[in-house]
């Protein structure tokens, strides 16, 4: 039996660089004027490429999809350089300030647009959405479950290993107190942790090849949504920068530092 083609959609996000200072703006939103491809999103991309490379007889396409401001094109372009076959960018001013609820509404429509437009030679494709374990700045980790609920897809989160079989994906994940081997059928949304693989770096040849790969940009209207469909459910009322931690007392060990630490802990009532 010939396996059905598989369309893997990898969600990638353009996020403020965690190595630099990140801040909220006056509107109570994270400042997104500069960014990088989220490190956590390199893992699902690598996972998708490994699945494709391990099944040369099966028609598998890897698409990268991002939602974000105009600058987010650098995230999908990097995804193309790393190895995605094509890329899609959803940008719309009505998505500024989207909460998890609104983000999952928009991404559901975007995933359906991407899968609906794709044509495959070897039959009707199944699809698999791969995501990182969380976004680097929001850190909620709630998007995969919300997206799956909306798509009517199965969901498995925090995968540490993936193995594609003919009609299902076998996933190793850690539940709270146990390790699980879980088999999931398509369509599915699977999030992967940073333990799942070692992401590759794009080489010069891949960077040149990426320039010829298709990048499709769309707005909310292009995916059949209007502003009222993506009104957030949660409103941020206040944001306050924490005062930065300052250095306290630093001593050099002169043979009694262990005792001095314990004295400090006792003084601070931490014992």
């Amino acid at each position: 039996m010939v396996n059905a083609p598989l369309h893997i959609i990898t969600l990638v996000k353009w996020v403020p660089d965690a190595q630099l200072e990140r801040r909220y703006n006056a509107e109570g939103r994270i400042d997104r004027s500069e960014g990088v491809l989220s490190e956590l999103d390199e893992y699902p991309l690598e996972a998708a490429l490994q699945i494709k490379e391990a099944a040369p007889d099966r028609e598998i396409r890897v698409s990268a999809l991002t939602m974000g401001p105009a600058g987010a094109s650098t995230a999908v372009k990097k995804a193309l350089q790393i190895g995605a076959d094509d890329a899609y960018q959803l940008t719309d001013d009505d998505l500024i300030g989207a909460d998890i609820w609104a983000t999952s509404v928009a991404l559901k429509a975007a995933v359906e647009t991407v899968t609906g437009a794709a044509e495959f030679d070897s039959g009707e494709p199944e699809y698999l959405v791969l995501t990182g374990m969380a976004s680097e700045e929001g850190e909620s980790g709630a998007l995969p479950a919300q997206l799956a609920e909306r798509l009517g897809a199965h969901v498995v989160t925090y995968a540490t290993a993936l193995d594609l079989e003919s009609e299902r994906l076998v996933v190793i994940r850690s539940g709270g107190t146990e390790s699980q081997r879980v088999a999931v059928t398509m369509p599915a949304v699977v999030s992967v942790t940073d333990q799942v693989n070692d992401p590759r770096y794009p080489n010069f040849k891949a960077i040149m090849a990426a320039k010829k790969k298709p990048l499709t940009r769309f707005t909310l209207a292009d995916i059949g949504l209007r502003r009222e469909h993506v009104e957030p459910k949660v409103r941020v009322l206040t944001t306050a920068a924490r005062p930065p931690r300052t250095a306290g007392e630093i001593i050099t060990d002169e043979g009694d530092a262990g005792v001095k630490i314990v004295e400090f802990l006792a003084k601070e009532r931490l014992l």
Binding site: I100, S140, G141, A142, A145, A148, R150, G175, K233, V234
Partner: peptide, 20 residues
């Protein structure tokens, strides 16, 4: 992870906001 996943899906079913 497991509680967050279930409650994230609940928020979609109820059409309500989630704060995580």
């Amino acid at each position: 992870a497991d509680a967050n996943d279930a409650l994230a899906r609940l928020a979609v079913r109820l059409d309500t906001g989630l704060i995580s």
